[in-house]
């Protein structure tokens, strides 16, 4: 997902819990929201910073593959739409950074951890957008996969995170629809355009399935995070839901999902499908994807190039304050 493989700091047996921890878990079980000033276990706080931070970084880095096409969108209208979509993602990053900051980490600290590679972002953004059809595939599949995960997270136990998710979900369906709209145009266009649409689906299908992360049905981290309600579904549940929703949409487009073993399983009431190549996933996560270096360099450059603006505006604000005080 946008936050993949979040290691949990908890994992305590109920018999080892302190009375405070027992009370805390009872509040979560009762469906109460935890707010920033409430008592919380250190593990809950740390795990959330990791998860929300990674989610925020993904929104920010996720602007890059699509930003690549803003100047080359085929029409002025498509350009305006893509610009609005990418601007939304910047907003999503901000909502999430603010939610993380309520847990006692600073924005600059989070940025520093991204730029130094100590914090990760979603593996999906390390793939290139080679053609205009890729912009369609990203909106349709990548935002589609993100929605699968973000909708249940609106019910997460941490108040600020839940509120950020609610805002984000409101904006997200526009993203998926504009992507599907591009895919429809391409798939119903010239044979060459349809080939581009098929090629985009071929390249983005498995990386999209990887977004949910490897199976975590057996993971203790996942179990703890689910007990804390900072994870709502298992990775496999969400992946299955995504496949079930997306396959009929691909059929509508007249495109073929690049999986020869994909077929409807009447008994299960779900599609059977092939797992992505998890070696590739870990490789990309470890920095060896097609665009890892490019993405990190772009973020580092943006941060360095913005230094004079951040400093200049702070100096200006201080000067204005001093002038006002002198006048009083």
């Amino acid at each position: 997902m946008y936050a993949q493989m979040i290691k949990s700091e908890g994992g305590k047996d109920p018999s080892e819990m302190t009375p405070e921890e027992v009370r805390f878990q009872a509040r979560i079980d009762a469906g109460e929201k935890i707010e920033p000033k409430d008592w919380m276990p250190e593990g809950y706080r740390k795990t959330l910073i990791r998860q929300i931070g990674q989610h925020a970084h993904s929104e920010i880095v996720g602007q890059l593959p699509e930003g690549n096409w803003i100047t080359r969108a085929p029409t002025l209208e498509r350009k305006a739409i893509l610009l609005a979509k990418v601007q939304d993602e910047a907003g999503h990053g901000l909502y999430l950074y603010c939610a993380a900051e309520t847990l006692g980490v600073s924005r600059d600290d989070l940025t520093e951890q991204l730029l130094s590679g100590r914090m990760k972002y979603s593996s999906i953004f390390n793939y290139p957008t080679l053609t205009w059809a890729d912009v369609g595939a990203v909106g349709w599949l990548v935002d589609g996969a993100a929605i699968m995960n973000q909708v249940p997270l609106q019910r997460t136990s941490y108040g600020p995170y839940s509120r950020a998710m609610i805002r984000i979900c409101k904006e997200e369906s526009f993203h998926q629809r504009q992507g599907f709209d591009i895919m429809m145009k391409m798939a119903q266009g010239t044979p060459e355009q349809k080939r581009m649409a098929q090629d985009a689906l071929n390249r983005f299908w498995y990386p999209s399935l990887m977004m949910f992360g490897p199976s975590d049905a057996e993971s203790v981290h996942s179990a703890q995070n689910m007990a804390w309600k900072i994870k709502i579904n298992t990775n496999d549940e969400l992946r299955q839901k995504f496949v079930d929703q997306t396959v009929p949409q691909a059929e509508y487009l007249g495109l073929t999902v690049p999986d020869p073993d994909l077929k409807w399983n009447e008994e299960r009431g779900h599609y059977d499908f092939s797992e992505p190549d998890w070696t590739e996933f870990f490789d990309v996560l470890n920095g060896n994807g097609p665009c890892n270096n490019e993405r990190m360099e772009a973020r580092q450059e943006a941060w360095a190039d913005g230094q004079w603006v951040r400093d200049g505006l702070m100096a200006h604000a201080a000067k204005k304050r001093a002038r006002k005080m002198a006048a009083e």
Binding site: A84, G91, C98, R163, A317
Partner: peptide, 22 residues
Amino acid sequence: GSLHAPDAEMAIKNARDVYTRR
């Protein structure tokens, strides 16, 4: 929600961009 800004004037400008796009 919240945001970072150097002063009140910029905070309002940023709030307009971040929280009133629709």
